Amino acid sequence: MATGGRRGAAAAPLLVAVAALLLGAAGHLYPGEVCPGMDIRNNLTRLHELENCSVIEGHLQILLMFKTRPEDFRDLSFPKLIMITDYLLLFRVYGLESLKDLFPNLTVIRGSRLFFNYALVIFEMVHLKELGLYNLMNITRGSVRIEKNNELCYLATIDWSRILDSVEDNYIVLNKDDNEECGDICPGTAKGKTNCPATVINGQFVERCWTHSHCQKVCPTICKSHGCTAEGLCCHSECLGNCSQPDDPTKCVACRNFYLDGRCVETCPPPYYHFQDWRCVNFSFCQDLHHKCKNSRRQGCHQYVIHNNKCIPECPSGYTMNSSNLLCTPCLGPCPKVCHLLEGEKTIDSVTSAQELRGCTVINGSLIINIRGGNNLAAELEANLGLIEEISGYLKIRRSYALVSLSFFRKLRLIRGETLEIGNYSFYALDNQNLRQLWDWSKHNLTITQGKLFFHYNPKLCLSEIHKMEEVSGTKGRQERNDIALKTNGDQASCENELLKFSYIRTSFDKI
């Protein structure tokens, strides 16, 4: 039985969820670079991206490699990797027998973001014989899940209580170790020597080791999670996991709180800001991140802002960003909400898709409305799209047979046209069989910064309504002859009103 693990408890099935942008060198404390989270699957090609990484700022997932063999891993080693800020997950990587050479110096898994409450997941690794993470000293947050690894031993010899604050939620089941077939031998045991430290858990006094050649490092209890030197002297209180010299914040392997210019500090002093819960960055760093993602459509890219001495992905609820200094300031009234469309555009074809934009005031991208039916549609669209004030790209209304009016965009005031449909149009209306009105132009103002209007096959939309939009939106004169079809717009509506004058002759039985 794995020490510190839980057996036999019912657990939810383990679901495996399925960018080499360097964020800056980590400095003297770390020998390499800070790398983003990685999802490495199918083959070993991307694994080489770990070569210079000291910190993975995010998670590391290595999974679904069915053609790899043990010899493929023999020359692979990433000794610079010290810390993973989120979680480490391995799933069905064939041929991998140990992690001792792959990650010989991995010391800390912070667990800032977890995989279903777990910071370390080893699942269905069919050839893994031992973990071998002999320098792993601290899992700051989260638990361990090690399950269905039929060859995995050296679990009962690990004292997880020396690595985690609590072992109650560890789930370590259905491994070879369960069948008591392992016969784990710690260093020196074969020669009758006791080389590794022994600890007591559940009444068992057991030597602690990761492999037959690597003991588990056990520091004096007084050192807590700070770690200790090879001689057993406690590291500085700002260290986490390990250090090369005692009581020196510049000799830590990793930091308990924050890293700044080669030393570990309790908090980031001005003019620095907390970033990702582990390091200090200056304003320029946060500003660069903001600008890199301002026009990016890459998933996970955030326009970072500053709030409460932190550089964070977005302002919290009730705050909006001051564009001059990136500071989050309290909103006066309802907060603006910028919604970034991942692929640059979004099609609204149902109430469900409209709900995804609920509360958005600025759309960074283009909207395509293609709704053919739905219950209580006008009210639903207004509830979900009615706060949109600005669209950076274009607005396209296409084959939306259920629409009679666009009044559900009740606050839309600006279409920038930074991206144009077919390279020309910022407003595009095609084949809307029941569209009769755009907006009530006596109450609604709309500016279209650039781009043209396109109207074709809107049989109940009168040309007068379209011409009014040209005047109000500032697009009059931009359109070419064929942009607004004269014969297919309003051709099934009563669009022309003329005053009919009647004269009559009164007659009676005795007068003409």
Results as ranks from 00 to 15, higher is better:
His28Lys: 06
Glu33Trp: 14
Val34Phe: 03
Val34Lys: 10
Pro36Thr: 08
Met38Trp: 02
Asp39Ala: 09
Asp39Pro: 00
Asn42Met: 06
Asn43Leu: 07
Asn43Pro: 02
Leu44His: 06
Arg46Ile: 11
Leu50Ile: 10
Cys53Leu: 00
Val55Arg: 01
Ile56Ser: 01
His59Thr: 02
His59Glu: 13
Ile62Ala: 01
Leu63Pro: 00
Leu64Pro: 15
Phe66Val: 11
Lys67Asp: 14
Thr68Tyr: 06
Glu71Ala: 14
Phe73Gly: 10
Asp75Tyr: 10
Asp75Val: 11
Ser77Lys: 13
Phe78Glu: 01
Pro79Tyr: 04
Lys80Gln: 09
Ile82Leu: 07
Ile82Thr: 07
Met83Ile: 15
Met83Phe: 09
Ile84Arg: 00
Ile84Gln: 00
Ile84Thr: 00
Leu89Asn: 01
Gly95Gln: 14
Leu96Lys: 01
Ser98Trp: 01
Ser98Met: 02
Leu99Asp: 00
Lys100Met: 10
Lys100Val: 04
Asp101Pro: 12
Phe103Ala: 00
Pro104Ser: 01
Leu106Ala: 00
Thr107Asp: 02
Val108Ile: 09
Val108Arg: 05
Ile109Leu: 06
Gly111His: 01
Gly111Ser: 03
Leu114Val: 03
Asn117Pro: 14
Asn117Ile: 02
Tyr118Leu: 06
Ala119Ser: 14
Leu120Tyr: 00
Val121Met: 06
Val121Pro: 01
Phe123Asn: 09
Glu124Gln: 09
Glu124Val: 02
Met125Thr: 07
Val126Leu: 10
His127Lys: 04
Leu128Val: 03
Lys129Phe: 13
Glu130Tyr: 14
Leu131Lys: 01
Leu131Asn: 02
Tyr134Asn: 04
Tyr134Val: 15
Tyr134Arg: 10
Asn135Ser: 08
Asn135Trp: 05
Asn135Asp: 09
Leu136Met: 01
Leu136Cys: 04
Met137Thr: 09
Ile139Asn: 01
Arg145Met: 07
Arg145Phe: 04
Arg145Glu: 01
Arg145Cys: 07
Ile146Ala: 04
Asn149Glu: 00
Cys153Ile: 01
Cys153Leu: 02
Cys153Gln: 03
Tyr154Arg: 05
Tyr154Cys: 04
Ala156Tyr: 14
Thr157Arg: 12
Ile158Thr: 09
Asp159Met: 07
Asp159Ser: 11
Trp160Tyr: 11
Ser161Met: 12
Asp165Arg: 09
Asp165Pro: 06
Ser166Pro: 13
Asp169Cys: 12
Asp169Tyr: 15
Tyr171Phe: 12
Tyr171Ser: 12
Tyr171Ala: 15
Asp177Asn: 12
Asn179His: 04
Gly183Ala: 10
Ile185Gly: 15
Pro187Thr: 11
Pro187Gly: 12
Pro187Asn: 06
Thr189Tyr: 09
Thr189Lys: 11
Ala190Thr: 11
Lys191Tyr: 04
Lys191Pro: 09
Gly192Cys: 12
Lys193Cys: 14
Asn195Val: 12
Cys196Pro: 05
Thr199Met: 07
Thr199Ala: 10
Val200Thr: 02
Ile201Pro: 13
Ile201Asp: 12
Asn202Thr: 11
Asn202Arg: 07
Arg208Val: 02
Arg208Lys: 09
Trp210Glu: 05
Trp210Tyr: 04
Thr211Tyr: 02
Thr211Gly: 07
His212Val: 05
Ser213Tyr: 15
Ser213Gln: 06
His214Ile: 11
Lys217Met: 03
Val218Cys: 09
Val218Phe: 09
Val218Pro: 06
Cys219Tyr: 02
Pro220Tyr: 04
Ile222Phe: 12
Cys223Gln: 01
His226Ser: 04
Cys228Glu: 02
Thr229Gln: 14
Ala230Arg: 02
Leu233Arg: 05
Cys234Arg: 01
His236Met: 04
Glu238Lys: 07
Glu238Ala: 13
Cys239Ile: 00
Gly241Phe: 02
Asn242Ser: 11
Asn242Cys: 10
Cys243Tyr: 00
Gln245Phe: 13
Gln245Val: 12
Pro246Ile: 05
Pro246Ser: 04
Asp247Ala: 08
Asp248Arg: 04
Cys252Asp: 00
Val253Gln: 11
Ala254Lys: 01
Cys255Val: 00
Cys255Asn: 00
Arg256His: 08
Phe258Glu: 03
Phe258Arg: 04
Phe258Ala: 12
Tyr259Met: 14
Asp261Asn: 10
Arg263His: 06
Val265Phe: 05
Val265Gln: 06
Thr267Leu: 03
Pro270Gly: 06
Tyr272Gly: 03
Tyr273Arg: 07
His274Asn: 08
Phe275Leu: 06
Gln276Tyr: 06
Gln276Met: 06
Gln276Ala: 06
Asp277Lys: 15
Asn282Ile: 00
Asn282Glu: 15
Asn282Ser: 14
Phe285Thr: 12
Gln287Ala: 01
Cys293Tyr: 01
Asn295Pro: 04
Arg297Ser: 11
Arg297Asn: 09
Gly300Phe: 09
Cys301Ile: 00
Gln303Phe: 10
Gln303Lys: 03
Gln303Thr: 03
Gln303Gly: 12
Tyr304Trp: 12
Tyr304Asp: 03
Ile306Asp: 12
Ile306Met: 03
His307Leu: 09
Asn309Ile: 03
Asn309Lys: 09
Asn309Thr: 12
Cys311Tyr: 06
Cys311Gln: 01
Cys315Val: 06
Ser317Asn: 05
Thr320Glu: 13
Met321Gln: 10
Leu327Met: 14
Cys328Pro: 01
Thr329Cys: 07
Thr329Gly: 14
Thr329Trp: 09
Leu332Tyr: 02
Pro334Lys: 15
Cys335Arg: 03
